[in-house]
Amino acid sequence: MTIFAQIYIDEDVDILVATLLIARGLDATTARQQKTLGELDPQQLSFAASMGRCMLTHNRLDFEKLHTSYVLNNQTHAGIIIAKRRNPYEIAERVAMLLDTLTADEIANQLLYI
């Protein structure tokens, strides 16, 4: 069982969120750090899944469709967290609360909203 989910932050989320999560002792990385800026959403999710990282994004419509496609095709991912656009401190707080509540295994293959 994996306790804490590792987060991969899409390029549309402020990189300050990663800094704030890391300051809380959580494992977070960004599209910028992974040199995946400009990749299409399917590639972003595939990359996150290949690393066993939960995807954090603001892009609700595209990632809802991708999640549905994964489910229908029996593909797995480490979870998708869709965050409403808020200030980075509030997003980081909500992500941290979610990760304190659910294990990585409970987040896997789920579509969650914060």
Results as ranks from 00 to 15, higher is better:
Leu61Asn: 06
Glu39Arg: 02
Leu111Trp: 14
Arg85Phe: 00
Thr103Tyr: 13
Val13Ile: 13
Ser50Asn: 12
Ala18Asp: 10
Ala5Met: 07
Val13Ser: 07
Asn73Tyr: 02
Gln33Lys: 13
Ala23Met: 06
Thr101Arg: 15
Asn109Ser: 14
Ser69Glu: 11
Glu106Ile: 08
Tyr70Lys: 06
Glu106His: 12
Leu26Asp: 09
Ile114His: 02
Phe4Asn: 12
Glu39Leu: 06
Ser46Glu: 07
Thr68Gly: 13
Glu90Cys: 07
Leu45Asp: 06
Phe4Gln: 13
Leu111Cys: 11
Gln44Leu: 10
Gly25Trp: 01
Ile15Lys: 12
Glu39Tyr: 08
Ile22Cys: 08
Lys35Gln: 07
Asp105Glu: 14
Gln75Met: 08
Ala78Thr: 03
Ala28Gln: 12
Leu37Phe: 07
Lys84Asn: 00
Thr2Pro: 10
Tyr113Ala: 05
Ile81Phe: 11
Asn74Cys: 12
Glu39Lys: 04
Met51Cys: 06
Val17Met: 07
Gly52Phe: 02
Ile91Ser: 11
Phe63Lys: 03
Phe4Trp: 10
Ala23Thr: 04
Glu93Gly: 02
Thr29Trp: 11
Gln34Val: 10
Ile9Trp: 10
Val95Phe: 15
Ala104Gln: 06
Gln75Arg: 15
Leu99Lys: 11
Leu40Gln: 10
Gln33Arg: 14
Gly52His: 00
Ile91Leu: 09
Leu21Pro: 11
Thr103Phe: 14
Gln75Tyr: 06
Val71Arg: 15
Cys54Tyr: 04
Leu102Cys: 15
Tyr70Asp: 08
Ile107Ser: 10
Ala18His: 04
Gln6Pro: 09
Lys84Ser: 01
Gln44Ala: 00
Gly25Thr: 06
Ala96Leu: 00
Ala104Trp: 02
Leu61Ser: 07
Leu37Pro: 00
Asp100Phe: 03
Ala83Gly: 01
Arg94Lys: 12
Pro88His: 05
Ser50Met: 04
Leu98Ile: 14
Arg94Leu: 08
Lys65Arg: 10
Asp27Ser: 15
Leu45Arg: 03
Met1Ile: 14
Glu11Ile: 02
Ala96Thr: 05
Ile81Val: 14
His67Asp: 14
Leu111Arg: 09
Asn109His: 09
Tyr113Cys: 04
Pro88Cys: 03
Arg85Asn: 07
Tyr113Val: 05
Gly79Lys: 12
Arg53Phe: 13
Thr29Gly: 08
Arg86Trp: 01
Ile91Lys: 12
Thr76Ser: 12
Thr19Gly: 03
Thr29Leu: 09
His67Gly: 11
Arg86Gly: 01
Leu37Ser: 02
Leu66Thr: 01
Asp100Pro: 03
His58Ala: 00
Ala5Pro: 15
Asn59Met: 03
Asn73Asp: 11
Leu21Cys: 07
Glu39Ala: 07
Ala78Met: 05
Gln75Ala: 04
Phe63His: 03
Ile3Ala: 13
Lys35Val: 00
Leu66Ile: 05
Tyr70Cys: 05
Met51Ser: 02
His77Pro: 06
Ile114Ala: 01
Gln6Ile: 11
Val95Lys: 13
Glu39Asn: 05
